[in-house]
Design a protein around this nucleic acid. Structure first.
Lengths: 121, 121, 121, 121
DNA sequence: GTGGTCTAGACCACC
DNA sequence: GTGGTCTAGACCACA
């Protein structure tokens, strides 16, 4: 399973992030029907209510919308998805910069290292 | 306290990393005498034996060395320190790139975002 | 269907009100013959006896009258209809004022809001 | 008890509205501490989780904010409260106008009736 | 079968 | 004692 939780942070938030990540990385594409709550819950081995909450909060962000009787669908608003994708990326970068900061490297040096490390990928 | 442990990884390793970070960021400077084991152990709220092991392992890396009976000193080998500092930095960058990868941004885009986010600091 | 009942109040009363509303809003005009009881009952998905009672009570108010054996007719007494229409309207207004009261707006403020909201219609 | 629920609409929404009404009408004043979740739940005779949800959603509107260990407090943002109060009032007026509409009165007539009915209060 | 709501009861972190 | 989270299991409306 791709579902692994870190202690100390609400599971429903982690579920949200994982699903958002799937949406943003194209695992679930715009307009796609998401698996039913109970199925996702079983897959993640959490209580359906917890998954329900995660999806409800995701819905509040506009990334998915529920069609009452037929299921949940990924938004087709590509702009919103792009927005979220960018926020994620900048968040990762911010996180790295925070750890990098006390090491005292200049922006130029960081960019050089980035170019070097990037070659591993 | 600056000591915060994440479950699942040996504490002595985390202690090692924290002390190495202090060395590399200049909290403890080359040639400085480190605080006594018992003091560090107390500060980290850890068994002195655990701290002892952390320091012993650190010694094996060459970053600190026990001189006579008088205590432990930070190495004055700047090259070794620089090496460690660089490894740390590249590790942080590698970590970020790994998370960034599934988002599908190009190196150029990542560098642009890096420049933008860097302005917050 | 336009027939929707709220629990807790006698259905025949709700039927009365709905029919009276139709009379007063001109769905059934003065002098018109009302549909037969069975037809109205079917439309409202209600036991004919219940509809029968509703119409009997309506008759007591004078808004409809049973002429000979041929059915029920809407009264031609415009004054009575006007009276009922006005009572309804004032009831709606009274209801709104009751909810408005604890909010503490002055009559002037309420009238301003009324003018503003009215523009939506 | 002032808590009375109408079937067919989620209880947590009705709880939200009731509490918001209390805030907006000054039962709970800006800066006041709200009663604890469990107490409100007991008073309303609902499950604490349901009340919890109502308060959480209220919090999302900014009308109250939770101070983790010490309780929930009514916002001191008077503008936001005023905004909400006005929305409520306009909602009541809109509701009345919708019912009034089929009766065919002019704005002037409605205002006359409003003045008349207002004298009862 | 789908999402949504509600209850009951447990546990946690924080102060 | 406070808010918050999680589980388990039931029920509902809708199509």
């Amino acid at each position: 399973m791709a579902w692994k939780f870190t202690a100390g942070r609400p599971i429903y938030l982690q579920l949200m992030e994982e699903i958002a990540l799937r949406v943003v990385t194209g695992v679930y594409e715009p307009g796609d029907k998401l698996p039913p709550v109970r199925e996702l819950a079983a897959e993640a081995e959490v209580n359906p209510n917890t998954m329900q909450r995660a999806l409800a909060e995701l819905e509040a962000t506009g990334m998915v919308n529920a069609q009452r009787t037929s299921g949940r669908y990924v938004t087709e608003d590509q702009g919103l998805l792009e927005q979220y994708r960018r926020n994620l990326a900048e968040g990762y970068i911010r996180e790295a910069l925070q750890k990098l900061k006390p090491l005292g490297y200049s922006l130029e040096e960081v960019m050089d290292m980035l170019r070097k490390v990037q070659e591993e990928f």
